[in-house]
Design a protein around this nucleic acid. Structure first.
Lengths: 218, 218
DNA sequence: CGTCGTCTTGACCAAAGTCAACGCACGTGG
DNA sequence: CCACGTGCGTTGACTTTGGTCAAGACGACG
């Protein structure tokens, strides 16, 4: 149904902010293609990434009720994104009451994932930390059919990864190195091969329960 | 309206888990009195606190749609808590459609706060980190009328604080010491005096916007 | 061919983490 | 009323981890 909408679709380049933290919120964003991330820029130059978005994600949903954007959204690759005015979304509550509940559910799952990120950043050592985010991304891509078997596109630079796990780039580099040496992953160009999924999950203490995916194949 | 409900109210001791992560969720919890926290226990013995709850908070709301408890809730002090079965809550959607939207809003704000915690734990140095949580707590207590002027009850042990900011107790102790030496706070027994609110906010880089409080007096 | 972005590596430093001892206040029970 | 235990806070010494910086390699692209 969503896809039948007459959407205002735009093609945007990589490394662009779609919305910026603090702006008044007017639209929800539907990521149709490409990758993006939600992040906050601090005044001391540091930056924290809160989540990665993949094709199909409805982002900036929080602005709907909050009235203002609480996180900047930035493309990581060239992307196609649909802009859906809040009025349109709110208009759905009449004809599709269940849809509203789904949107609510979406925010609940977002929150559940955030909690796991707090744990990740707060309690896990460097190596486990990057492993854990990798697991999460792979698991999510798998669930939405964006992974073929053990391989999936995951165009994250180490810089980006570093801002997601709150570690310096140098350490991320070393951690990835270790993961390859351990025979758990391999990556060529912008994609990731998982060589040993169970091993990877163990290395990152990854338990996908918090993602609340319908398809628990992972 | 909430308070008129025929609630199943129980008095519970300090340091008790009201619900445990992973349990099937059946009730929402309304904290009527006392303090509690939401936390996850890791298998390596570490623990991360996600949020503090004060009187009036409706907790375990996530379980309503998710079906399972995603975080344990533990009392920090003796507390009175009301148990509200999910069916009751869902039953409200008919008579009070706006209430559902409020509950949704609640989860959005919870998520916004979680994001700030990711930033806090990920990007801020020890001293700023504990300062920031203190600011948050004070700000929230103030907003719900649980602070008289510069003074509020805040019965957090340093252990608890440590698990919230992901730092060793020793560091929390030192940070609090510094805050007192700097003349920003003072604390006697279980309550906190804010001596210099603006200074405290600056020390913790605290900007209350993310709390989305109606009363922006803080 | 040069440039830019990304990744890798090493050396070094500072901050967080660990551990353990001590002090103190508050109970309880003899 | 005192002895004792317990929970909580403080302090110090020490280790490890994460953080910073900078140089170099490699590949993509114009």
């Amino acid at each position: 149904m969503l896809l039948d909408l007459p959407l205002d679709v735009q093609q945007v380049r990589a490394h662009q902010d779609l919305v910026r933290s603090g702006d008044p919120a007017q639209c929800c964003l539907l990521l149709l293609d490409g990758f993006a991330c939600r992040h906050k820029q601090l005044r001391n130059g540091r930056r924290q990434i809160m989540a990665f978005h993949v094709a199909g994600d409805l982002t900036n949903l929080t602005g709907l009720l909050l009235g203002q954007v609480d996180c900047s959204i930035r493309t990581l690759t060239p992307a196609r994104v649909g802009f859906i005015p809040h009025d349109t979304v709110l208009g759905w509550s009449g004809p599709y009451p269940n849809l509203m509940r789904l949107l609510w559910l979406d925010t609940l799952i977002t929150a559940a994932v955030l909690q796991e990120w707090v744990v990740n950043v707060g309690q896990r050592p460097a190596y486990e930390r990057v492993t854990h985010v990798l697991c999460e991304q792979v698991s999510r891509l798998h669930a939405v059919g964006l992974a073929e078997g053990h391989r999936c596109e995951l165009p994250l630079t180490q810089d980006v990864l570093a801002d997601a796990v709150a570690l310096p780039v140098a350490h991320v580099s070393r951690a990835l190195q270790e993961l390859q040496d351990a025979g758990l992953i391999a990556h060529l160009d912008r994609s990731l091969h998982v060589l040993d999924w169970d091993g990877l999950k163990r290395a990152g203490w990854f338990d996908p329960g918090y993602l609340h995916q319908l398809d628990m194949a992972a």
